[in-house]
Amino acid sequence: MDKTVKAEGRSIDSASARVKSSAAKPASRGRAKPPAATRLGVAKTYKLYINGKFPRTESGRYFTLADTKGNIAANMCRASRKDFREAVLAARSAFNGWAGASAYLRGQILYRIAEMLEARAEQFVTELKLMGLDKRAASREVTATIDCLVYYAGWTDKYPQVFSSVNPVASSHFNFSILEPVGVVSILARQESALLGFVEAIAPVIAGGNTAIALASEQNPLCAISFAEVLHSSDVPAGVINILSGYRNELAEQFASHMDVNAIIANGDDASEIKMIQEQAANNIKRVIIRKKSIAADPYQIIDVQETKTTWHPIGG
């Protein structure tokens, strides 16, 4: 065994030596240049992001995404309810760790996501252009997304002071209210905005210590799936953010009904969908947050997915 390895090592060495020697005498031997072969592009497979891994959908289904010229841009995973169930399991097991992480650490990680996105801005501009934006609008959207992440990174260790309170009560108690994350949050991302809409929905949720399962925009899912790669290189613990792509009308009901999901954020204004979400969410009295249109980043979006815990502490006596 050892011998063969050594033998192989030698042969590689001698091969590289040959390459070197031929490089030393350029072209003079008159060796013909190889014909310029047409290179096959290596297209990216857009997969799901569950528990820090990139699996294909368990169902094996996919749907085709066309670019603005009608060419096939990508085959997208059409996630099933079982994929969603796996994602909820991942989010649930990641919750205690993430909720228990210090506000400072959560801020650092959100900032790190922004750093990674900044470094890969060009890729996202290309994808947004593929989806029909012009160059200027595309870079504006990427920049706005990075700024949004930095904005919420800053809020992680500030919203507790701003929104917690000491309450005046008419008895000898020291009474105070503090915020705690609600738990696992399912998110239906905005349809029209591929990147900004997606990140705007996620960032305040995780800034507040929740874990999330997000369904990418059905029409513009490319950036959301690529964003998973940014998350993956940003020290976000596995399971804190899980990303699915698929048909919204197929998955929305699962997002709303799952008993182990504590809140749902639905971006969109389809009245029948909103009604369905409210009914299904009643099963376990999930918190329902409907955002009919895009709103600018603000700390109240963090508070939307926080519970208030009030403590009565006896004093005096």
Partner: peptide
Amino acid sequence: GVYQSEDY
């Protein structure tokens, strides 16, 4: 028909 939670 609804996925369950350990909480219950």
